[in-house]
């Protein structure tokens, strides 16, 4: 039988109890503690303050802090649940939980919708999709003529925007994704299954006396 007695006074500010976080997510207590090892690495890469700044997030993602990227910014803003300009450990675990292979499909669909709804109007508009395509071309070697971008947008909106009002609402998005399940591939991180083997040092820093998996 697992028996959890949290030790006190070892947690930095903003660090939530792993037992509580495990109870709210698909992660076990050990996995939350292993995620804390990753969190500590990222959050101390520029300033060791127990919080992930946008710069630290970009550094972890691209191994290059100068690389501005629309999509990385968008992910950061969605992880920054409390809109504080930084990601604390609770935000980090709850947000990564959506990317867990066992997370509900509906959570993944909703997260992807928010990701692409750049101005948070509740709709993915054609102009937003165009902006994302242009951002993609800027970051990659790919070159597409403006007419080609418009053809891609036409094709996409004919398929996704069922009522043809020029924007994709949540239910249109759900239908579109169910017909194109590969779109959700980015929403699952198989790495999250092996987090305790990737960061085994969590065992030495464990805050619970006994760890049940």
């Amino acid at each position: 039988m697992g028996c959890f007695h949290s030790k006190v006074a070892r947690q930095p500010p903003g660090h939530e109890d792993p037992v509580v976080l495990a109870s709210q997510t698909a992660f076990s207590v050990s996995e939350v503690e292993a995620l804390y090892e990753l969190f500590k690495m990222i959050s101390s890469s520029v300033v060791d303050d127990g919080l992930i700044s946008k710069e630290e997030f970009q550094l972890a993602l691209f191994k290059n802090r100068k690389k501005e990227n629309l999509f990385a910014n968008r992910i950061f803003d969605l992880f920054d649940v409390k809109q504080k300009g930084v990601i604390d450990f609770g935000d980090f675990v709850r947000s990564l939980n959506v990317f867990h292979p066992n997370a509900p499909q509906e959570d993944k669909i909703n997260f992807a919708f928010k990701l692409y709804d750049l101005d948070s109007t509740g709709f993915i508009e054609r102009q937003e999709v165009k902006q994302m395509l242009i951002a993609l071309l800027c970051e990659s070697e790919m070159k597409l003529a403006d007419e080609t971008i418009e053809i891609i947008l036409d094709k996409t909106f004919i398929e996704a925007d069922v009522d043809q009002d020029g924007k994709i609402d949540k239910s249109e998005w759900q239908n579109f994704v169910s017909r194109n399940p590969s779109l959700l591939k980015i929403m699952t991180l198989p790495y999250l299954r092996d987090i305790t083997t990737t960061f085994p040092s969590f065992v030495f820093n464990s805050e619970v006396d006994e760890i049940a998996t």
Binding site: V129, L133, L189
Partner: peptide, 26 residues
């Protein structure tokens, strides 16, 4: 696959900024 045969979201999802697996690379 030629990009023009892909829909916009398939293309967008190839962005490096959406590939969170790199967070786990030490």
């Amino acid at each position: 696959v030629a990009p023009v045969t892909m829909n916009a979201f398939e293309l967008i999802s190839t962005s490096q900024g959406l590939n969170l697996s790199t967070l786990f690379e030490k």
